[in-house]
Amino acid sequence: MAETGEGKKEEADYKRLHSFPLIRHTDMAEEMRVETMELCVTACEKFATNNESAAKMIKESMDKKFGSSWHVVIGEGFGFEVTHEVKNLLYMFFGGSLAVCVWKCS
C-alpha cells in the first residue's frame, strides 16, 4: 500500500513538475516561437482530454495568424518525418506526457 501511495505521490510530483512547456526543437523566430508555444499550451489545457480538438484549434489559429497551411500533431506517442518550410517548425513537449509538433508546409 505504501508503495502505491508513494507511486501516486511521485506521479503527482511528476505531473506538477513537468507541467511546463518544453521546446525540443524549433527554428522559428523568437516572437513567433513564443506565440506558438503559448497557443499550444492554451489549446492543450483547454482540450485536456481531446487531442483532436486541441490540434484543430492550434491548426486553425496558426492558419489565421501566419497563413496556411499548418499541420499539427498532438499525441503521447508517435513518430514522424515531415517536410516543413524553413523557420516554421515547432516540436515541443507539454504537461509531462504530450508531444506537439506544429509545422507549416503549403
Binding site: 511528476y14 513538475l17 513537468h18 518544453l22 525540443r24 526543437h25 499525441g75 503521447e76 506517442g77 508517435f78 513518430g79 514522424f80 518525418e81 515531415v82 517536410t83 516543413h84 518550410e85 524553413v86 517548425l89 516540436y91 513537449f93 509531462g96 506526457s97 504530450l98 508531444a99 509538433c101 509545422w103 508546409c105
Partner: peptide, 22 residues
C-alpha cells in the same frame, strides 16, 4: 519557400527524459 525535413519520435520515455534533463 525553402523547406527542410524534420523527423523525431515522441513517446512517453523520451518525453520523460527530456523533462528530467530540463
Amino acid at each position: 519557400p525553402p523547406r527542410c525535413n524534420f523527423s523525431a519520435t515522441a513517446n512517453q520515455w523520451v518525453i520523460y527524459d527530456a523533462y528530467m534533463e530540463e
